[in-house]
Amino acid sequence: MYADLPTARATVQISATPEAVWALVSDIHLMVKLSEELLEVTWLDGAGEPDVGTRFRGRSFHEALGEWESTSTVIEFKPNSAFTWEVNAGQDVRPSSVWGFSVEPCAVGTELSQWGQMGPGRSGLNHAIDRLPHKEEKIVANRIGEFQAGLESNLRLIKELAEGAR
């Protein structure tokens, strides 16, 4: 159920330094190249790189949801360690989703995790749930499956980039 804050998470080990991996995951423009949904990102308020409180606008497209813009705010930024942002896709003051990366040293170099949480605020998905409340569980499961596939694809591509840059 959407109210349960469904979350997808993926982790990969990368034969590269945490600093090399961090340089990739802290570049919001790289996410456009990795994501099938994210079309464009732009820093707001004169920001040019992430830090707690900085904001960026994203433009996304999904075949079933259409095109939309959202504003994200960085809520955690610890260099070479953690980068988390919340997305507000509408009038709701609560985030419609929360996304993050964590970077940790490990035996092979770096363990990289990415996660995405739906809610607690409303998003485009809620319009489908409002129309078909009896199918909420299936709608959420399908979308969280898309989140999971996207995270796994992102991490695979980041791994290729980081290991190719050695």
Rank of each mutant, 00 (worst) to 15 (best):
V103W: 02
G119P: 12
A162M: 07
L132V: 02
G121A: 05
L34S: 00
L161P: 08
V103F: 00
S123Q: 04
L132M: 13
E36N: 02
G66V: 12
P18G: 04
L112E: 02
P18T: 05
K33I: 00
L38E: 10
K159N: 02
E104F: 03
W68R: 08
P105W: 03
E40H: 14
F56M: 12
L38H: 08
V32R: 08
I75H: 03
V103Q: 00
G58L: 12
T17V: 04
H29Y: 05
S15E: 15
S70Y: 07
H29K: 09
W99R: 05
S113A: 14
S60K: 02
P120Y: 07
M118S: 10
V12E: 07
T54E: 07
D27G: 09
D130W: 11
I14C: 07
E63C: 01
K78W: 11
E69D: 13
L38G: 03
V41F: 07
S15M: 10
V12C: 02
E63D: 13
V12R: 10
E36V: 00
N80A: 11
T110S: 09
H62T: 03
T11F: 09
R57G: 03
F61R: 06
S81Y: 07
D92T: 04
Q91A: 12
I158D: 01
E63P: 13
G121C: 09
R94A: 09
K135D: 06
I75S: 13
A8G: 10
S81V: 03
E49K: 13
P120F: 06
H134W: 11
S123F: 12
T54G: 01
L34A: 01
M31V: 06
N126E: 14
R57W: 04
R55L: 11
S97Y: 09
R55I: 12
V32C: 09
L30E: 10
L155Y: 07
W85P: 04
K138Y: 08
A128S: 08
P50S: 04
N80M: 12
N80R: 12
N154V: 01
W85D: 04
L155F: 08
V21S: 01
V108P: 01
T84R: 15
L24V: 11
L112P: 09
K33W: 01
N88L: 14
N126H: 15
K78Y: 09
K159F: 05
V93A: 08
K78V: 15
R143H: 12
S60Q: 11
G90Y: 10
H62L: 07
I75P: 02
F147M: 03
F56H: 15
G145L: 01
R156E: 13
S26T: 13
